[in-house]
Design a protein around this nucleic acid. Structure first.
Length: 441
RNA sequence: UCCUCGGUAGCUCAGAUGGUAGAGCGUUCGGCUGUUGACCGAAUGGUCGCAGGUUCGAGUCCUGCCCGGGGAGCCA
């Protein structure tokens, strides 16, 4: 055993806290940060985190000597340390195990940490987002986010979809009217992508089944619990596919994601106090209703809404509350929808589109449908929406060379994370949220 | 952009009717061999968001502005 503890090298195995139970009684090294310290004279209790979990470490004056013990008494919240010692099973410890420390090496004594283990206001925490990420709760959320993203990728990869990255700088508006972030692109104007869909359609004609996964940007001045200016979206697109195919894929994706997170991130969901049985019950098939059926249900409840109106936030919530799992609403009035949406041949006033509304009032998590594949219909729509034909020339070309029915959708990752974690705001679902007027840190 | 609530110590907040500012936590020092957001004692801490106005006197009343929370519209 070394004395002094000044070296950061160690002969013992370096063990992550989540693996600690496998090393009971062995000499090991743990590298991490101090979450909290409680001291009682000749005994000090350190809560150490290492990114995989928390561990209570016991430093005893009799065990480590006066020098090491006084070093220990200087440790502030978030000081970085390397500890060696033996893990011991103990019911008094929060994780079931604690570490009897034999040597302590201090890498850095942290300055007083702004975030204390107590309640803080949201504004303050957002200002210190770079430090807030260290909290148990933020850590749990971002691990669930990771699991959701991983599951989406595996889901599409396993089904023969090819990942196609779409550009972030774009020359024109995908959906025409929505607000775009404008930026300088040498001597031209460019916009940040608000969707990869149009490029996804080109890729689907090349590869059959594709998906893109990346950040998207919308300069809508929205200030709600469901909006970010920069958010991540996964967007599959399939050639030779129609609206029912898109609805089926969406249902398979969302149910797979839920089941996978419940399976692999249960302890994180527990930290977040999520109602896990409620999540587990969300198995397919999901209910599917038409826009008109949804309209009838809302009108029966007394909502002042008529055909042609889009659903407001309250409408979506009240509709979703009728079901114990996500609900798919399809065939909205075509007038309110984007130019590329195919129309129902039997009801030309309806678009072959669908939204998936998450349960428990989390709102729309998926939007998509079947695209127009007929050249003349698309040209007519571009004209009707008063869009610049020149900018869409390449997109129109897709209807000139072997056009086929195709469909797809976009799923907003942050809303899915907020819903699965049971959060009341999407700002906690992404490491560094970009919000209206909030660009720092 | 609109509606609404707020801005007092590093943090979370309290400061009736206008009379010159408080607590807890943190930090520093001391005490404690089983603590769980430990506890006990002491010390430390403020242009009361900014600028005007009313008043003998404004954290408190009035006007304007800035910043933040919640909500709406729009959307994923």
């Amino acid at each position: 055993m070394r004395a002094g503890g000044s070296s950061i090298m160690s002969e013992q195995p370096v063990v992550s806290i989540e693996q600690i139970s496998q090393f009971e009684g062995q000499d090991i090294t743990v590298k991490g940060w101090i979450r909290n310290r409680r001291s009682s004279g000749k005994l000090s209790f350190l809560t150490v985190r290492d990114g995989t979990g928390d561990l209570q470490a016991i430093v005893s004056k009799g065990e480590v000597g006066d020098d090491q013990f006084s070093l220990c008494s200087q440790l502030t919240q978030e000081s970085s340390v390397i500890l060696t010692g033996k893990p011991r099973r103990d019911v008094r410890a929060p994780g079931g195990f604690e570490l009897d420390v034999s040597t302590l090496a201090v890498i850095h004594i942290a300055e007083p940490f702004p975030i204390q283990p107590k309640d803080h206001g949201v504004g303050f925490l957002m200002e210190y987002r770079h430090l807030w990420l260290r909290s148990r709760r933020q850590h749990a959320i971002l691990r669930v986010r990771h699991e959701i993203i991983r599951t989406c990728r595996n889901f599409f990869d396993d089904r023969g979809f090819t990942l196609i990255d779409t550009p972030i700088f774009t020359p024109n508006a995908c959906e025409g009217t929505t607000t775009l972030f404008q930026t300088q692109y040498f001597d031209q104007v460019a916009y940040l992508a608000q969707s990869g869909q149009l490029y996804g359609e080109a890729a689907a004609a090349a590869f059959g089944k594709i998906y893109c996964f990346g950040p998207t940007f919308r300069a809508e001045k929205s200030k709600t619990r469901r909006h970010l200016m920069e958010f991540w979206m996964v967007e599959p697109e399939m050639a030779f596919a129609d609206l029912p195919d898109a609805m089926q894929l969406a249902e398979d994706l969302v149910s797979t994601v839920i089941q996978r997170v419940v399976e692999t991130r249960r302890s994180e969901l527990e930290i977040l106090e999520r109602d896990i049985p409620k999540l587990e019950a969300m198995v397919k098939p999901f209910p599917r209703i038409t826009y008109e059926e949804a309209l009838r249900r809302l009108q029966q409840k007394g909502a002042a809404i008529q055909f042609g109106d889009d659903f407001g936030a309250d409408d979506e919530t009240s509709l979703a509350q009728e079901f114990d799992r996500p609900v798919i609403v399809h065939r909205y009035p075509a007038d309110a929808k984007a130019f590329y949406m195919a129309k129902d041949p039997e009801r030309p006033d309806l678009a072959l589109c669908m939204d998936m509304l998450a349960s428990e009032g989390y709102g729309e998590i998926i939007g998509g449908g079947e695209r127009i594949h007929d050249l003349n219909k698309l040209l007519a729509q571009i004209k009707a929406h008063d869009l610049p034909e020149e900018a869409f020339k390449w997109y129109v070309d897709l209807r000139r060379y072997g056009t086929v029915p195709h469909a797809g959708f976009g799923m907003g990752i942050e809303r899915v994370v907020a819903w699965i974690c049971g959060l009341d705001h999407v700002r906690e679902t992404i490491p560094f949220p970009r919000m209206l007027y909030t660009l720092y840190p």
